[in-house]
Lab assay of single mutants.
Amino acid sequence: TYTYKLTDEEASRRAEDEWRNRGYDVRVRNNNGTWEVEVR
């Protein structure tokens, strides 16, 4: 499981799409203004 911490929502969406396209399960959540993109 990888977790990315990003401050930019758009960057988190791009990361989400990119990993999803590669067949990974992705979750995005906002934690106090930081976007966490979790990849498994």
Score class of each variant (00 low, 15 high):
T1K: 12
T1H: 13
T1W: 15
T1E: 11
Y2N: 09
Y2I: 15
Y2Q: 12
Y2R: 14
Y2H: 14
Y2T: 14
T3D: 09
T3G: 05
T3V: 14
T3L: 12
Y4G: 05
Y4I: 14
Y4E: 14
Y4M: 10
Y4W: 08
Y4N: 04
K5F: 15
K5L: 15
K5P: 11
K5M: 14
K5Y: 15
L6Q: 07
L6T: 15
L6A: 12
L6K: 03
L6V: 15
L6G: 09
L6H: 13
L6E: 09
T7A: 15
T7V: 12
T7W: 13
T7I: 12
D8L: 03
D8F: 04
D8N: 11
D8K: 01
D8C: 08
E9S: 05
E9V: 06
E9D: 04
E9W: 09
E9K: 06
E10M: 10
E10P: 07
E10W: 08
E10F: 07
E10N: 08
E10T: 09
E10A: 13
E10R: 07
E10I: 09
A11R: 04
A11N: 06
A11Q: 09
A11T: 10
A11D: 08
A11V: 04
S12T: 11
S12M: 14
S12R: 04
S12H: 03
S12V: 15
S12I: 07
R13L: 08
R13F: 05
R13N: 06
R13T: 05
R13Q: 08
R13Y: 06
R13E: 04
R14M: 10
R14F: 09
R14Y: 07
R14T: 08
R14Q: 11
R14A: 11
R14E: 10
A15N: 03
A15L: 15
A15M: 15
A15S: 06
A15V: 15
E16K: 05
E16R: 07
E16N: 04
E16Y: 12
E16M: 12
E16Q: 10
E16H: 06
E16A: 15
D17V: 14
D17G: 08
D17I: 14
D17E: 14
D17R: 14
D17N: 13
D17Y: 12
D17A: 14
D17P: 00
D17W: 12
D17L: 14
E18T: 09
E18I: 13
E18N: 06
E18L: 14
E18Y: 15
E18C: 15
W19Q: 01
W19F: 08
W19S: 02
W19D: 02
W19P: 00
R20D: 02
R20N: 05
R20M: 06
R20Y: 04
N21K: 15
N21T: 10
N21Y: 05
N21S: 13
N21F: 06
N21Q: 11
N21P: 00
N21L: 12
R22L: 12
R22E: 05
R22F: 05
R22S: 05
R22Y: 05
G23T: 00
G23A: 00
G23M: 01
G23S: 01
G23D: 02
G23E: 02
G23Y: 02
G23N: 02
Y24L: 04
Y24Q: 03
Y24F: 12
Y24C: 07
Y24V: 04
Y24S: 02
Y24P: 02
Y24G: 03
Y24T: 03
D25M: 09
D25V: 10
D25A: 08
V26S: 01
V26F: 00
V26Y: 00
V26H: 01
V26R: 00
V26C: 01
V26E: 01
V26K: 00
R27E: 12
R27T: 15
R27D: 08
R27W: 07
R27M: 11
R27I: 15
R27C: 13
R27N: 11
R27V: 15
V28Y: 03
V28M: 04
V28G: 01
V28S: 04
V28P: 00
V28D: 01
R29V: 12
R29Q: 09
R29E: 05
R29M: 08
N30I: 11
N30F: 15
N30L: 12
N31P: 02
N31L: 12
N31V: 14
N31I: 14
N31Y: 10
N32Q: 07
N32M: 08
N32R: 05
N32K: 08
N32E: 10
N32W: 03
N32A: 08
N32V: 03
G33I: 01
G33Y: 02
G33A: 03
G33M: 03
G33D: 05
G33K: 02
G33C: 07
G33R: 00
G33Q: 03
T34N: 07
T34V: 15
T34C: 07
T34F: 13
T34D: 07
T34G: 06
W35N: 00
W35E: 01
W35Q: 02
W35V: 02
E36W: 13
E36P: 00
E36R: 01
V37H: 04
V37F: 03
V37N: 00
V37R: 00
V37P: 00
E38K: 04
E38P: 00
E38H: 06
E38W: 04
E38V: 12
E38D: 06
V39N: 00
V39R: 00
V39E: 01
V39P: 00
V39W: 01
V39M: 02
V39F: 03
V39H: 01
R40I: 11
R40F: 11
R40H: 09
R40V: 10
R40C: 13
R40Y: 12
R40P: 04
R40W: 13
